[in-house]
Simulated scan of single mutants.
Amino acid sequence: MSMQEQIRYALASAFAPQHLEVHNESHMHSRGQDSHFKVVVVSEAFAGLRPVQRHQKVYAALGELMAQFHALAQHTYTPEEWAATGQVPDSPTCLGGSKHDGH
C-alpha cells in the first residue's frame, strides 16, 4: 500500500469524513518520492475545535505514519464550513533548501 493510500485509510478510519482528499505533492519538492502530502478532511469531528486542535487530531490519527514522510499540509473543515468554502488553496511552490538539491 502506498503512503498516500495509508494516509487515506488512517484518516477515513479516524474521522468518517464526508469528503476526503489526499494529494501526493512530492513532485513539487526536492526531497524525492512520498515526502510531501496535502490532505483535505471534512468531518463533524472538527466541530467546535480551533485549527490547531484539528491538526493535532489529524496527527494523532496518522500516528507512526508521520515519521515516514517530511511534510503534511492540512485543510480541515466541518461540513458547514466546506459547504460555504468548497475549495482548498493551492500549495505554495517549494523554495528548495533540501540536502537532496545537490548544491
Score class of each variant (00 low, 15 high):
residue 1 M to S: 15
residue 2 S to W: 11
residue 4 Q to N: 09
residue 4 Q to F: 01
residue 5 E to T: 06
residue 8 R to L: 03
residue 8 R to I: 00
residue 9 Y to T: 06
residue 10 A to L: 06
residue 12 A to I: 07
residue 12 A to C: 08
residue 13 S to R: 09
residue 17 P to R: 01
residue 19 H to E: 14
residue 20 L to E: 07
residue 21 E to R: 11
residue 24 N to H: 03
residue 25 E to P: 00
residue 25 E to H: 00
residue 26 S to T: 06
residue 29 H to I: 14
residue 29 H to D: 04
residue 30 S to A: 11
residue 30 S to Q: 11
residue 35 S to P: 00
residue 36 H to D: 04
residue 39 V to F: 10
residue 40 V to D: 01
residue 40 V to A: 11
residue 41 V to T: 08
residue 42 V to L: 04
residue 43 S to N: 08
residue 46 F to G: 02
residue 46 F to P: 05
residue 51 P to A: 14
residue 53 Q to T: 01
residue 58 V to T: 06
residue 59 Y to W: 01
residue 61 A to K: 09
residue 63 G to M: 06
residue 63 G to C: 08
residue 63 G to D: 13
residue 64 E to F: 02
residue 65 L to D: 03
residue 67 A to C: 02
residue 67 A to V: 01
residue 67 A to D: 12
residue 67 A to W: 02
residue 68 Q to A: 08
residue 70 H to E: 08
residue 71 A to M: 10
residue 72 L to S: 02
residue 75 H to E: 01
residue 78 T to H: 09
residue 79 P to C: 01
residue 80 E to G: 00
residue 80 E to Y: 00
residue 81 E to K: 06
residue 82 W to T: 00
residue 84 A to S: 05
residue 85 T to D: 10
residue 86 G to I: 09
residue 87 Q to L: 06
residue 88 V to L: 02
residue 91 S to N: 13
residue 91 S to L: 15
residue 92 P to E: 14
residue 92 P to G: 06
residue 92 P to T: 12
residue 92 P to S: 13
residue 96 G to C: 06
residue 96 G to P: 11
residue 96 G to Y: 14
residue 103 H to W: 15
residue 103 H to L: 07
